[in-house]
């Protein structure tokens, strides 16, 4: 199963796991905008339940 997914990622040049499909920043967290979880504006409340699981990565938070 792991090998099949790895081959698929390599062939199709995918960047993310298909875990949360409810919003674009949870489907592709590594490709999301810099505001990531706060898609609409920096103080926006989180819309999606998985947003509370998928926090913005630390290297994103450190950037201006």
């Amino acid at each position: 199963m792991r090998e099949a997914s790895r081959i698929m990622v390599e062939k199709l040049q995918l960047t993310d796991l298909c875990l949360f499909t409810e919003a674009r920043y949870t489907r592709h967290p590594s490709m999301a905008d810099l505001h990531s979880a706060f898609q609409d504006h920096p103080l926006a409340l989180e819309h999606f339940p998985s947003g509370s699981l998928a926090t913005p990565p630390s290297f994103r938070r450190e950037r201006p």
Partner: peptide, 23 residues
């Protein structure tokens, strides 16, 4: 905005980090 492969991997590391959200 260039995104490195290591940053992609780190994203998943931090999503499922023990400090993350509901965890």
């Amino acid at each position: 905005r260039p995104i490195l492969n290591s940053e992609i991997l780190r994203t998943y590391d931090s999503i499922f980090d023990w400090r993350g959200g509901m965890m």
